[in-house]
């Protein structure tokens, strides 16, 4: 049985503090992890925690990490949307830790869309 200890709580506090500091900067990129029931069941929490970790490791203070609900493509979960300032959002599907790391390195940091994993470009509401 996983139990929370004081050490765990300290770890949570330190992690959240670091990310909260990151948020105070101006944002140039936004990573949205889809956390509907379908996303969570498919592994969105692992993706979210990986994103938090890699953003922290990158020491970039202009990346916002947030969540959203179901996008309507439940079978494609876990999914994340990457938005770079001034560019159309890109939805990535069937994510794993390795895939989101590659997407972060290539898309978020270098601005190059990872076509292998991209599901759609642009917002479905605009169609």
């Amino acid at each position: 049985m996983a139990k929370l200890s004081i050490k765990d709580l300290e770890e949570i506090r330190n992690k959240v503090k670091k990310t909260a500091m990151l948020r105070e900067g101006i944002s140039n990129a936004k990573i949205t992890v889809h956390m509907g029931t379908c996303g969570i069941a498919a592994g969105a929490r692992t993706i979210m925690n990986t994103v938090i970790k890699i953003v922290e490791e990158s020491k970039r203070d202009d990346i916002i990490v947030t969540t959203s609900g179901c996008a309507g493509f439940c079978s494609k979960e876990p999914m994340a949307t990457i938005e770079l300032k001034g560019e159309a959002p890109v939805k990535y599907s069937d994510l794993t830790e390795d895939k989101i790391r590659r997407i972060f390195d290539e898309h978020v940091l270098k601005g190059k869309i990872v076509k292998d994993y991209a599901l759609v470009i642009g917002s479905e509401r605009e169609l």
């Binding site: 049985m1 996983a2 765990d8 949570i12 990310t19 909260a20 992890v33 956390m35 929490r45 990490v65």
Partner: peptide
């Protein structure tokens, strides 16, 4: 199982 509560809390507090 209760599972990884820590990950749940971190995901919520950060988001």
């Amino acid at each position: 199982p209760i599972g990884d509560l820590k990950s749940t809390f971190i995901a919520l507090l950060t988001s």
